[in-house]
Design a protein around this nucleic acid. Structure first.
Lengths: 148, 148
DNA sequence: CCCTCTAGTTGTACAGTACAACTCGAAGGG
DNA sequence: CCCTTCGAGTTGTACTGTACAACTAGAGGG
């Protein structure tokens, strides 16, 4: 396999993966879509943030985030706390239930990945991981990237 | 980085990629969604096939394929030819325009991938490619996989 | 000739998304 | 102190991709 073939293969396989990913994530965890999972994860990591921050960070429209947030609140996975200083702002926090579901989905996702990768030599895992990091970290020369 | 960390990283980066992929593919080629592109590509490779074959191959519902096909036909990118032997069957073929658009999108996708990967050493490209192939080729032990 | 199987279409529903128009509160300049 | 402008969020609307269920129409075996 030469470099050009390798690029072709990467293209093809990334396309296959992209097409499958959401649906299979959804099948794996009907209770928490990939988007909700990501947003919940961000709230966990950040320890609470504004809807606008989520929108900016994930390059989503604020209306999209607004509705996601509304759904997550309806499901009692997050709660909104009005910012005392700026009454336009709602700071989003995980509820106990949210933290639990997130942990549970994280665990089961981790288990699925471990299972899928269990036969890989450690060396290959490390290389694959660093390739993916490098691939995702790429920024378009014109700087028009959406962030993750 | 040890193996467990590597698995975590792979999980995280694949998730990031999955979330971004469709949207960015759509932005890249507003004229041909990732699904349409994939279906057109399959018709090119197979030299014409039935809607049912597409549905089976990509684990899509036949109604989904039916509507995709209808849209592609409306756009004059494919045409349906009634099978002479079995009048239930429509064999789908690329039109000239379809072949052209497909080639054009394939080229521009290829260019985008090349650009994104241009600084990678050939050795890394080959390793990344084979990791992806291996990753996507995995079949769940219970055999309940959807095909690509 | 009926029964059943298969290919495909259509009705309906839902998730995720964007854009545009809106409300409400904040902040700064006359 | 008002007025304009800005930022955060919500809501109306629309579109895409998707699935499931109900249907039509052709094929093929008893």
């Amino acid at each position: 396999m030469d470099a050009d073939e390798a690029v072709e293969t990467i293209q093809r396989e990334m396309t296959v993966f992209a097409r499958r990913a959401r649906a299979s994530a959804g099948r794996m965890h009907p209770e928490l879509s990939l988007v909700s999972y990501t947003l919940l994860g961000h709230l966990e990591e950040s320890g609470g943030c504004r809807a606008t921050d989520l929108a900016a960070h994930y390059a989503l429209d604020k209306s999209t985030v607004s509705r996601q947030v509304a759904a997550l609140e309806r499901a009692r996975l997050i709660e909104r706390r009005l910012d005392a200083d700026d009454h336009r702002v709602q700071v989003l926090h995980l509820t106990h239930a949210g933290r639990e579901i997130l942990a549970q989905v994280t665990d089961s996702r981790r288990a699925a990945f471990r299972e899928r990768l269990e036969d890989w030599p450690a060396e290959d895992l490390e290389r694959f991981a660093s390739c993916l990091v490098r691939y995702n970290a790429w920024v378009r020369p014109d700087g028009a990237n959406s962030s993750d």
